[in-house]
Amino acid sequence: MGKYAAIFRIQLLNSLAYPLEFLGRSVMVMLFLWIFFQLWSVVYAVNGGGRMEGLRLHDTLWYFMLAETIELGRPRLAQSIAQAVKDGSIAYLLNKPFDFLLYQMSAGMGESAVRMGLVAFFGSAVTWWMVGPPPAPAGWLPALLLVLGAWMLHFCVNALIGLLAFVAEEVTPFEWIYQKLTFILGGLLIPLDFYPDWLQRAARALPFPAMLYGPARFFVQPEGALFWNTAGMQLAWMLALGSLLLLAYRGGVRRLVINGG
């Protein structure tokens, strides 16, 4: 649909209006990567170098690079949606001829495209310099698909948290919990492979690994089984979270048109 492409485009342009902020974010990524490089170097040295749970130092760093790209580039819509719900401005988005959720999704993608691009660019540069070239290009395209799937899950969770503003006064705590869960159960800071078995199993029962670990792990060791496994998880969770989101949205709008929010 042309209108959603246009929304994507204008949000992309809007995101480019702040070059300094992006530069700041990119420098931050390089710093993160450098710190983790120091940390993992020590861990690997203590364990005699080589592989840990099948991952080399090189893999772990590239894993972290992609995981950071997803985390820093993911949609950050919860607050803006919550704000629109609370101050009633959501009503003024409803009297335009577009679908509110598709609007948010297109705008979110426009913003993420810029952010992910920059983080990946600067992140790759510094990772390459520290541990050598990225994994073989053959896995890049499927990895990108998994990143897109992960993005969709983040979008659903973000929008759901934002819509919670219909019933909760403040959504920041929910956002905080979600972020910390993705950090730990999504495997941002440590790849899930390094966790004890029971924790790995618990994490895999939740959507978080499909939102970070799956795409990043596939990127460093592109194996068909992992791709299909992750893609399947993403699809299943997209269905579940997407339906939940639709329900929440419809309920919210009903409340809005009847009681003015």
Binding site: G2, I10, P97
Partner: peptide
């Protein structure tokens, strides 16, 4: 924004 609205209003 004008161009965006143009698209939104088809």
């Amino acid at each position: 924004t004008f161009r965006l609205f143009g698209k939104i209003y088809e």
